[in-house]
Simulated assay, not measured.
Amino acid sequence: MQAFLKQGGGLGKNPVKPKPKKEEITKNKPWVEKYRPKSVDDVAHQDEVVAVLRKSLTGADLPNLLFYGPPGTGKTSTILALSHELFGPELYKERVLELNASDERGIDVIREKVKKFAQLTANTYRSAGKKCPPYKIIILDEADSMTKAAQEALRRTMEKQTKTTRFCLICNYLSRIIAPITSRCSQFRFKPLSTEDQKKRLMMVCEKEGVKISEDAMDSLVICSEGDLRKSMTFLHTAHRLKGEEGISRNDVLEITGVVPDEIISSLISSCRSNSYEKVQAAVNHIIAEGHAATQVLTQLHDEIVVMPTLTDDKKSIVMEKIAVVDKCLCDGADEYLQLMALSTTIQQQLAS
């Protein structure tokens, strides 16, 4: 009996799983996180911000910061890289409080989490004996989602805790931040990445990961991402997972990004020129059957209408107004087929008149 119990002693116990190695964790990371800038100098295309932050690393004081600009331009990556360089890995968790304001944006969070963290004092030495700044950093991501009451409460905390805490607010829309906060921060606009910088960063990733991609596919990837490096990196990772060693072509990029092929847009415009309702209906039915998003069709039609030589400025303005109305209806949940038909018939009328 004792022998049986000894043999069965392991039953019911969960086997201890070996911890994954650091190399395996890094290998399985999304490329967006794997190639996130590790230092301020790694940040691409934001020279003014990098110049100011580099001085803070050499001993100059750091002001309260307000980063604003389009998504995917490196706002969060920049302040995280600065924090890691200032405090090192041993003090980073103690000195940095990162909050996503879209999840936690009420006044209670400002009164409890932010205020308590800001009141704590900080020493000037790391565990290794190296000096570090005598302040902490509070990062409020998506600060434009904070309520007005929360922003007003934050203003007072920023005033009182200037000796021990620096704030970094990150937002897409500067107009949604109240004036008393913007006046207390150094404002930096993050510009969409240029085509050259985006290509350089993507080609570096392709070399390290062994990705085969054609030149026209890379051009399409940059155009479709519209200056958003995070989006282009995600598209590249997805395309590589799907195609692997086959190599990434332009059609693969268009399929992943959801861009409507130029042939379909040209076919829709040609059907509008034909002055035949049946042809317009067939073209719209084809777009719906292929599963293309109506909002993407609107974006590409807009770009085509703007440069169309056969339409006068007055006619273009009528079409643009209709595009705006259709876009609003789609946001409100209207039927895609009916809205595309309404827009197509408007284009047809302007081309025929």
Rank of each mutant, 00 (worst) to 15 (best):
K191M: 13
R241K: 14
D252R: 03
R184W: 06
L169Q: 06
Y173G: 08
T157W: 00
C171A: 11
Y173F: 11
Y135L: 02
S220N: 10
Q151K: 09
I181C: 06
E263T: 15
E226F: 04
V205I: 15
S194E: 09
A143Y: 02
H240V: 05
I177T: 05
K200E: 15
G129I: 05
I256H: 01
T157P: 07
I265H: 03
R241P: 01
Q187P: 08
S127W: 00
T157C: 07
V205Y: 00
N251V: 11
G227D: 01
A128Q: 13
A150M: 06
Y135E: 00
V211G: 04
M218W: 02
M203L: 15
I178Y: 08
E196L: 14
D141L: 08
C132W: 00
K200M: 15
D219W: 01
G258V: 10
R155S: 06
K163L: 10
E152A: 15
L236Q: 03
D197P: 11
L221R: 00
R230L: 05
Q187I: 14
A217W: 01
E255D: 15
R156Q: 14
V211Y: 07
D216R: 09
K131G: 11
M218V: 03
S214I: 01
P192N: 09
M146W: 01
C168L: 06
S186M: 15
R155P: 07
L254F: 06
K130Q: 14
M204P: 08
F190E: 01
T257E: 07
L268S: 04
K208M: 12
V260N: 04
T234V: 07
L174W: 00
I138A: 04
V260Y: 05
S267W: 11
N251R: 13
H237I: 04
V211K: 04
E215H: 13
L268E: 03
S267Y: 13
R184K: 13
K231Y: 00
Q151M: 09
T157G: 04
G129K: 09
K131E: 13
T164N: 12
S175A: 11
M218Y: 02
T147Q: 09
L193W: 08
Y135V: 03
D219L: 00
L268F: 07
E152S: 14
F190W: 06
I178F: 07
R201L: 11
L221A: 02
S214Y: 03
L140R: 07
K163F: 07
K200C: 12
S127V: 10
E196M: 13
K130M: 11
I181Q: 08
